[in-house]
Write a protein that binds this DNA or RNA. Sequence first.
DNA 1: TATTGTTATACTCTATAACTATA
DNA 2: TATAGTTATAGAGTATAACAATA
Lengths: 147, 147
Amino acid sequence: MSEYEGAFDRMLKLAVVLNEDMNHGLTQLGLTQSRAHVLWELHHKGPTTQRVLADVIRVSARNITGLVDALVATGFVTRQPHPTDRRAVLVTLTEHGTKTADAMDREHQELARVLFSGMPAVQFDCFVEGLDKVLVELQDRVVASIP
Amino acid sequence: MSEYEGAFDRMLKLAVVLNEDMNHGLTQLGLTQSRAHVLWELHHKGPTTQRVLADVIRVSARNITGLVDALVATGFVTRQPHPTDRRAVLVTLTEHGTKTADAMDREHQELARVLFSGMPAVQFDCFVEGLDKVLVELQDRVVASIP
DNA sequence: TATTGTTATACTCTATAACTATA
DNA sequence: TATAGTTATAGAGTATAACAATA
């Protein structure tokens, strides 16, 4: 049974290293993970209310207020009036915010390339297939254990 | 080039799900990730000074003071006098702390089993080999980019 | 003089609850 | 009455810097 543990530990280690690498990249860009998450959503959704951001990122409205405050202060986004609902604001990327999101996108692709280039096709396919199995297994397990 | 991206995104998603699952388990045990990390080191090293804990976990001495305060308050560890150095304290697992660390160990093994059982041997081997390659690649990349 | 740990201070992410303005 | 966002308050993790006691 314990033959699995080595692979599992490698997986955890990979997650840690990946996370450190990502944080390092974000720091270079003047971002934290949470703020980058907001930027990412805005990049994909376009101008968005804070309510929607809170829902998709799954944090409190209060927290979004703070994150948007920080992103405004550092020049990544602005708050624009909502055209039809005067209670709401539309959080909108500045030019700097857009450029930064593009840079994140490029780094994301670059990292994927660096990671998997040099892996032979057969092995790559096995790896991907294994990943899929693991994800399905784990999601089942999580769903079963969390409610 | 972009055939890699799907696999990479799966990997990131797996890391996220894994992290959520782990946090859920830790909450059940009355721990946070940072406190669990301290517990884990104590479990493997035995009674340890705060200075050493700060070094292995790579956080400030101030932070260790806070984490140990919290673990003392919640009954996982005690501070014992160091036998030869009166400046230092030995952070020591209580019985509850030891039992909790054992439980973490069991859950760790159980999760590995659940994840990989049902994966055919050939596929498992490919997966593990792929993981190794990826880890080596990524560590090279991180080492190259971080200094 | 160097080291261990604490106190002081500050920043980030997170939450709940009370409140304002608007729907 | 319900919703969008803010203010108030609190707790966790993180850091640096100044300081105490001890080596």
